[in-house]
Write a protein that binds this DNA or RNA. Sequence first.
RNA 1: GGCCCUAUCGUCUAGCCUGGUCUAGGACACCAGCUUUUCAAGCUGAGAACCCGGGUUCAAAUCCCGGUAGGGCCA
Length: 489
Amino acid sequence: MPVRVRIAPSPTGALHIGTARSALFNYLFAKKNHGKFILRVEDTDKERSELRWVQDIIDGLKWLGIKWDEGPDIDGKFGPYKQSQRNNLYEKYLKKLLDEDKAYFCFCTTEELENKRQEQMSRGLAPKYDGTCAHLPEKIIEKNFAEKKLSVIRFRVENKKIKFNDLIRGEVEFDTILMGDIIIAKDFETPLYNFTAVVDDFEMKISHVIRGEDHISNTPKQLLIQEALGFYHPEYGHLPLILAPDRSKMSKRFGAVSVTEYKDQGYLPEALINFMALLGWNPGTEEEVFSLSQLSKEFSIEKVQKSGAIFNIQKLDSLNGFYIREKPIEKLTELCTPYLKEAGLLVAGQITQNKLQEIIEVSKTRMKKLSDIVELSDFFFADKLKYDKNLLSWNKMGESEIKDSLKYSEKILSENKKWELKNIEVELFLASEKFNLEKNYPEKNKGYMLWPLRVALSGKQSSPSPFEIANILGKEKTLKRIQEAIKLL
RNA sequence: GGCCCUAUCGUCUAGCCUGGUCUAGGACACCAGCUUUUCAAGCUGAGAACCCGGGUUCAAAUCCCGGUAGGGCCA
């Protein structure tokens, strides 16, 4: 059987990081085995499904670079990959099960079921359907329909042990005796998840179902339905879950959960891919940096971890910083631009593309995310800096000492004939030695001159070097900032 | 409550299948040093783990059993 895998997200919210990781692992599995990766949108929940979320899923996967071979956007806008467009198919199989008496109508009300459940639990039993409607006489069923009683369709679950060989966990066994007859549809128009998934996987010839561990208890149910319908069984593999720092399921409470949010904060797709792959998988070597195409070659499902993995944002940050530093400067500038624009720092025509690149070049080692650029570089764009004058002091220098230092810098820089990084640096270094000698400061400590200068130019506790800033600012602006600092004292 | 899954540094993990080479390796984080006007980046180094209890064995992180803990699902 050719390898065909899928992800089947519900469009009831933004593309979740867990779904994205399932997509990644399915994609890698398909690539590795020369198979196909399919995207199928499971919009059975009519109330909560929305078109905009379908779009979000499509956009998110595209941004990550996870391409699907079949699915929305490829076979028409949604093609046959939306469940809401496949209802006649479900109806056909539902009728088949009903005709063969493998499923039946159940007329129990929610209250009745709730009462029974309470009663079972109070007796210390596992709550399950007691089979009240399992063998209703034909007449009663007809009467119920005539009276328009609400019904659901239940699937007869035979008592037996059901085993399957999980791709990741090995043999897993369930006892169906604890399950009870499961509801597979509310009515012909509203089939339910376990049923539609089985029909879709069969119709789409899915060979391997690779999904989150939260689905593991659905697997025996699906296996049973497959048997009843005479379908083949796909192979199953259950991925460990991505956990919040407290080891519970990832939730909003602990920060961003959707791919879009990470994108907006300025994480790069390559960092997110690399990070997600390493959550629950590793190649067994000491390599840690992987591109999507490398992963496609090296991935193997046997090496996927069995236990859940905590989403460690620091590791993502470190990886993201790494990929940011690796980016060609033109590309990085392009990526940072929207953030600078949004912060109102970039006004059209005020700065050349070259200048902008220089600013980003000197800032990039401090960036963890693209959005950091704003905070790191705003002083380059500002007209007038705002900062506490106490920041100008290095090693407890008093105000008059700082003033002397700044005036010295001003003098040196105003005499500069060649405004160029290396030159500025050399001149200031030499000047600083002279200055220390004149003032009786420790010879080697260049901070007496360079710290006040750097603060005058940046207004910040930390920033690139004064040489880099001065070089980018240009002579005129540099001198102006020094004079403004002197005025503060 | 029932069922299922899982268990190596704080975190992600290598090693486990095929016991000895493990005084348990790497990465992130943390700390220190180098570099340095600052913060980063870079380089070097330190600290840090086999859930517990039995058993098998000459030998167990590795095999078996039993606990415990965490998580998922059902409701």
